[in-house]
Design a protein around this nucleic acid. Structure first.
Lengths: 176, 176
DNA sequence: TGAGTCATGTAAACAGTTACATGATTGC
DNA sequence: GCAATCATGTAACTGTTTACATGACTCA
């Protein structure tokens, strides 16, 4: 159960609404922990009911009202307890590779097309991460220090995307 | 639902028991599709009840009896139908990065130790994949052709492990 | 004698996805 | 007028993990 801890970690760095969180997950954590808005909203409610988070309602004009969530001291100690336990190993789910594995039964043209599409998506992702990284590098102190570790996680995302793109190019060459 | 298709793909290349499959998943597909034995056994039963697989019982002495599963023509066409549909995007779950993200609340010594442990595990994995790769390169025809695409998938595993190890080294340096 | 391998399974709990549901504002 | 953005939620279903369960053989 790491989603709750990912949420606590992100809200500890900066409080925000569920909607904010969904976007932050998507922009900066999604390559190592993707979560849908349904998951996040559900988990936020659960965390609040366990008093690990508390929320403040913000009334807005023109836009729907929102709830700003913040981590409670209990939430912090829950996070810290979790930090002391060994982390589970990384897991990847990559359906495209199942296709390639079974590729003898597939139409090669379709395979090539699909690899190309995924490659384009990965290239876009890589660019996003690189832009994010630039932003973090150019932060002023003390924000730069605050985001030092999150920035370090981004670097793995960049390396993995680069590895993927390299592989895709070689694979396209190999099967053509 | 790609587990069933991963199973069909692997059994299509070579039939085998549930136990065999668990090991094959672990040795060659785990980095892009990990599955526990519980998942695999359950799915095998389901696939057989849907007539996408059929099994033959093999009585053994000294060892428990086993069921050898084989893909049926219906299974093949199910796989082919799936191959035509667009594959979903890759997903990674990496709890260690949540820890690093929240690392300000953690003990740096513990963090370093844990990254080192994971690094060792990834190094072992990388070696396994490289050995597997060697094996596949040295196969005689027609086996070499048969395993050409599975071998291609292994290469992504190798690249990702290499990327991970590089990142771990840089991270250990950065936080020390 | 204890760990590891071979071989299969069940049940409960937890996590994640898909579909349904609402409604105002902003930009093309 | 249509799509996107802001903002939150429920319900049903599917997928994954953890714990329980058995039992013979092999190797150090």
């Amino acid at each position: 159960m790491s989603l709750r801890h990912a949420i606590l970690a992100m809200l500890d760095i900066e409080k925000g609404s569920g909607y904010d969180l969904v976007k932050r997950f998507d922009q900066s954590v999604s390559y190592f922990w993707a979560a849908s808005y349904q998951q996040i909203y559900r988990e936020l409610q659960k965390l609040e009911s366990e008093a690990l988070l508390e929320s403040e309602e913000v009334i807005q004009q023109g836009k729907p009202d929102k709830k700003i969530y913040e981590v409670t001291p209990d939430g912090i100690s829950e996070l810290q307890k979790w930090l002391e336990k060994p982390a589970k190993a990384m897991k990847i789910k990559e359906p495209l590779l199942i296709k390639i594995y079974a590729g003898e039964l597939a139409d090669t043209g379709l395979l090539i097309e699909e690899i190309s599409q995924h490659k384009a998506a990965h290239a876009t992702r890589l660019q996003q991460y690189q832009e994010m990284s630039e932003l973090l590098i150019n932060l002023e102190q003390p924000l730069r220090s605050k985001y030092f570790l999150p920035h370090q996680t981004l670097k793995l995302g960049i390396k993995i995307e680069e590895a993927w793109l390299e592989w895709a190019e070689e694979t396209l060459e190999a099967i053509t």
